[in-house]
Design a protein around this nucleic acid. Structure first.
Ligand SMILES: [Mn+2]
Ligand SMILES: [Mn+2]
Ligand SMILES: [Zn+2]
Ligand SMILES: [Zn+2]
Lengths: 141, 141
DNA sequence: ATATGATTTAGAATTATTCTAATTATAGAA
DNA sequence: TTCTATAATTAGAATAATTCTAAATCATAT
């Protein structure tokens, strides 16, 4: 999504495309990392001509989550990260660096997985609406 | 694990079986819920004859995690929960109540899952040492 | 131009957690 | 037994992430 689309997208969702919101969204859409609010605040503060407050960063992120441009991810204790990748996907945490890498879902397995968990845990009837896998490990080679 | 075992277990791991630690461990071992430090603090304070400090709860929980009597679970933003179930397992979050229920792993699928994720994401070579699934949904019937 | 509501802001407040430094408990040496 | 070293606990301060509050600014429609 480029700047033009972003502006349009905001208007379509009845969101004022303010410089703060646009810069935050643009920053997220141009990174594959999964930054925290603080990291976003630091980066966006440098780009904007006017000062920005951390409250605005949190407000904007909440709004962007609500309209569905971004997602929140919880992979670590006491830290929320934000993700431009809004498709269903999973995360690999590099235990050496802390880096979080997107992992594509495997639909065939996905169906099997949910089915089998339903069978395997018969005591309570779950209706699973979604699930998220966090992989932990390291990169090799 | 009963009280006697617990005492023995502590000694075997060079941990003084203090009333605070024993009461915290005992509380966790007798619940299937996944309580927070604050919930544990409240419960344990009632049981102990002497007062206990929240710092001791956090200290003791860290130690119990380190020796492997309990595990930490992260299913929600900005909240760590503690789990007596130290086997590899997953969690189902009841989105209506917030309740967290253990979900048994399905080993056959598990192997397939890891294998396939390795195949499906060939750009970077992951060495997956473990993974955790959080299911979201509701209970039916 | 003016009014109105939306947005942003600085800073206070809150929540979860960790740190600090003093106090208490305990086990082993004398 | 007393002494002593070390471990454990404590209250409260500090920190980190987030949310709240209430005032200031901005934008839009009259
Ligand atoms: Mn939020
Ligand atoms: Mn901890
Ligand atoms: Zn992602
Ligand atoms: Zn569990």
């Amino acid at each position: 999504m480029n700047n033009f689309d972003l502006n349009k997208y905001f208007l379509e969702h009845n969101l004022k495309p303010t410089p703060q919101r646009l810069t935050i969204a643009e920053y997220l859409l141009n990174t594959t990392s999964h930054p925290t609010a603080e990291e976003i605040y630091q980066a966006v503060a440098k780009k904007l001509p006017m000062p920005i407050s951390l409250a605005t960063v949190y407000n904007s992120l909440d709004i962007l989550v609500k309209v569905g441009i971004i997602k929140e991810v919880f992979t670590e204790p006491n830290k929320v990260r934000y993700d431009k990748n809004i498709t269903n996907h999973h995360h690999f945490v590099n235990m050496q660096t802390g880096e979080i890498i997107d992992v594509e879902p495997y639909e065939l397995l996905s169906e099997q997985l949910v089915e089998n968990y339903l069978l395997k845990n018969p005591k309570q009837k779950f209706k699973i609406s979604n699930y998220h896998i966090t992989f932990y490990g390291e990169l090799v080679e």
